[in-house]
């Protein structure tokens, strides 16, 4: 689906810009975990992404019961979550 693909690219760019990452947006593996072994983000980044997402897409991220946030499982999962919840 082209919308999802372009949203994925857009979210990748948002992450790289918000977090000042060394990685280029197109280098982020859409299936790789964003935290820990994948892109290596941490809890400071999670808040930063939550902030960027609320500004850009007009909704709030929230914790699942576990700290193991399913929506941060990968870029693809995050983009899908944004697609479903965006108001802006």
């Amino acid at each position: 689906m082209t919308t999802t693909l372009s949203l994925e690219a857009e979210v990748a760019k948002l992450i790289v810009e918000a977090l000042h990452l060394e990685t280029a947006p197109e280098e982020i593996d859409p299936e790789a975990p964003l935290f820990g072994e994948g892109l290596g983000l941490d809890s400071i980044d999670a808040l930063e992404i939550a902030l960027a997402v609320s500004k850009r897409y007009g909704f709030q991220l929230r914790s699942d019961d576990e700290r193991n946030h399913r929506i941060f499982a990968s870029l693809r999962a995050l983009a899908a979550h944004i697609e479903k919840n965006r108001t802006g």
Binding site: E48, Q60, D65
Partner: peptide, 30 residues
């Protein structure tokens, strides 16, 4: 579990007043 700004708002709403929020500069900024 309270981590994101929306979690903070929900957690505070779920408990009776007076309410004390224990947090960090990073989360206040968010």
């Amino acid at each position: 579990a309270v981590f994101y700004p929306s979690d903070v708002a929900e957690a505070l709403a779920a408990v009776p007043a007076p309410r004390l929020l224990v947090t960090t500069p990073l989360q206040l900024r968010a």
